[in-house]
Design a protein around this nucleic acid. Structure first.
Lengths: 141, 141
DNA sequence: TTTCATGCAAAAGTTTTGCAACCCC
DNA sequence: GGGGTTGCAAAACTTTTGCATGAAA
């Protein structure tokens, strides 16, 4: 996604536009590796040497409330996902890589629909992780 | 599950049996509310006043490695799940309750099978959370 | 007897908070 | 100009670690 598109998205959501925010949003949205806060901090810091982690945390919570990114808490630290479609995260327990994966046949939609239709719960968003070994770690073992 | 059954399970897994471990395992396995470490600590402490949180953490990691419980990291703190079947966690964003739910039609099994069959990933275990409003919070709103 | 768990204390690491200066709208 | 954001520092909290004592096998 281009810088201009991201700026427009932020404005659409009523988020005040600052250079730091734009840079942070750009890094998270254009990273497919589900970066940690330290990853994001480190990548954005190349452009804003005075940036602090507090600003990164603050911005990420703004982006999350706007629905642009999702926080994925893990045991050690959170990862961030900018894919807001219904998908599965394939989490490698060895190298800690995370890859998005389509579940196929609209299975996830069907599960959510059924729960919604029961009237016992009102769905907002979801997280589906499958833990195991990624292709690369499989080869190495 | 009875104390005797739990003791047997621990022994089967080669876990050294201590009164503290048995009590912690019993609390987690017989709690359907997905307790936090502090919840577990507080419940077991009634019986073992000298118990420390370090022991609770240590025991939980042993139980997790044995596959008896699953850790669910959240933003604030982890919750513990003793349901090792393929299910969905309905997580209320208002009252923070977590209720297990069957997905129906073996959808989860089908999704996992497809990923496994692709040969690109080797499944171990999974976590599927749906966030939203629980029945009770829906009524109150 | 040997090995491992417990309790206690301290450390580590992530995330949050408070506040003054500054920038966006 | 007004209100929200940044940067800096410190605090809060969960989780981990080290080590001596004590209990399980």
């Amino acid at each position: 996604m281009t810088t201009v598109d991201i700026a427009e998205k932020l404005r659409d959501q009523g988020i005040r536009l600052t250079p730091q925010r734009l840079a942070i949003a750009e890094v998270v949205i254009n990273s497919a590796d589900h970066p940690t806060v330290r990853d994001i901090y480190s990548r954005v810091r190349d452009f804003f040497p005075y940036l602090t982690v507090a600003t990164v945390y603050s911005t990420l919570s703004v982006l999350e409330r706007a629905g642009l990114v999702a926080q994925l808490p893990f045991q050690k630290e959170s990862r961030y996902d900018s894919n807001n479609t219904l998908h599965v995260n394939l989490v490698c327990t060895k190298c800690e890589s995370i890859v998005d994966c389509d579940a196929g046949d609209n299975y996830l939609e069907k599960i959510k629909d059924r729960i919604q239709d029961s009237g016992l719960f009102q769905n907002k968003y979801q997280r589906f992780d499958i833990y195991g070994l990624c292709e690369n770690c499989l080869k190495l073992s």
